[in-house]
Design a protein around this nucleic acid. Sequence first.
DNA 1: CATGAATTGACCACCTTGGTCGGTAATTGC
DNA 2: GCAATTACCGACCAAGGTGGTCAATTCATG
Lengths: 208, 208
Amino acid sequence: MHENFTGLKEDKRDSIINAALTEFATKGYELASTNEMVKAAGISKGALFHYFASKKELFLFLCDYVFKVVSQEFYEQIGHCDGDLLIRYGRAAMLKGAVYQRYPPMFEFIKRISVEKSPKIEDQLKERLVKMMAYGYQCLLGNLDTSLFRQDVPADKIRDLTIWALENYGNRSMELIGDQRVEEIDLEALNTDFAQYLDVLRRCFYKQ
Amino acid sequence: MHENFTGLKEDKRDSIINAALTEFATKGYELASTNEMVKAAGISKGALFHYFASKKELFLFLCDYVFKVVSQEFYEQIGHCDGDLLIRYGRAAMLKGAVYQRYPPMFEFIKRISVEKSPKIEDQLKERLVKMMAYGYQCLLGNLDTSLFRQDVPADKIRDLTIWALENYGNRSMELIGDQRVEEIDLEALNTDFAQYLDVLRRCFYKQ
DNA sequence: CATGAATTGACCACCTTGGTCGGTAATTGC
DNA sequence: GCAATTACCGACCAAGGTGGTCAATTCATG
């Protein structure tokens, strides 16, 4: 149904996608307003419903789109290439940054839909989410080389603590750079700071 | 203005508080519906506006109430008594559990208002938040004994990583027990599981 | 029973909602 | 150049939700 939309120029498409992602991410499915979306995207109401038959179809399109982007630009670039958890997460942080630059609200959107519970989309959303989560889990945590960890504490605990700490670090960074314009983000400083934390984790959690 | 409210019986008061907290926490100030609150609390619309002059006053009352509870039941029980970060966080987890049992939506409410940006309450909220955050930071992180940490990595990094990991652990636990009824939560199992993670952190991050 | 307070819920004017549709502007094919 | 088709606009719609009110009722207390 949304062939009209996929033919659009890239920047216009992205601005609509980001406007819709933002609205759904901040208010959830039911309370998200198509009026706000068109205002933010700078298009008319008619245009939006020319691209998508309904709010529901727009939402499900966004889900599929997000899942495609995350799978291709993120998951597939990470998994299997290295069993070292810290290397994997270092790479993941880079990739996340790249996605964030093009689609700033995407990760907030994902966070939101994973707790979304509107009955109008429940079933269709759930099946997409399940597939997505399984794939992500596999790529990020499958085939881990836990023999790299120090052996005097349980490997799964080390894995969990590492992931939790780095996830939180990621959220903080996103909040910090959230206000700034994309160009003026000091990626260099961010990377060295991040590397320091990775180093500490390696020293404390890995075999020496 | 809310003298009518403070005189209520405890369970009725709590149910109204929790209904309002939930509504504000899930939808934010602007989109939170007083209709939904009264429905969830099992009182009439008239009653709510008999207790509080307006939605705004209700919201600010809740802020003050939450800050009082968190300060008295949480922050003041933690700080200064011990410089050991892990002991402090262990204690914090217990206290958090206690608050959660009486006011399940309280921490979600706090999370939400710290990113709230409705202009109608912005100023009054901001000043409360600033005070709150400063006090919380002081109690949780003030007077830390970093000499307990291993000395071959920077103490502030260890502190950050510990806090991030444990915060994430806390969120996960809350999500897990979020569905269950309060009585059937297996606190014993939770505590031993938590203790294991604390132990790993102590082994890896502390002097041996 | 009488009096004052607590509580109810129908009701208000107003606003936003998802979606439509007659119209205009731009693009295409010939 | 013209006709036909497509892209796009924005005023408009009925439906439903908003915070808040208030006359009427229930309740507690003396």
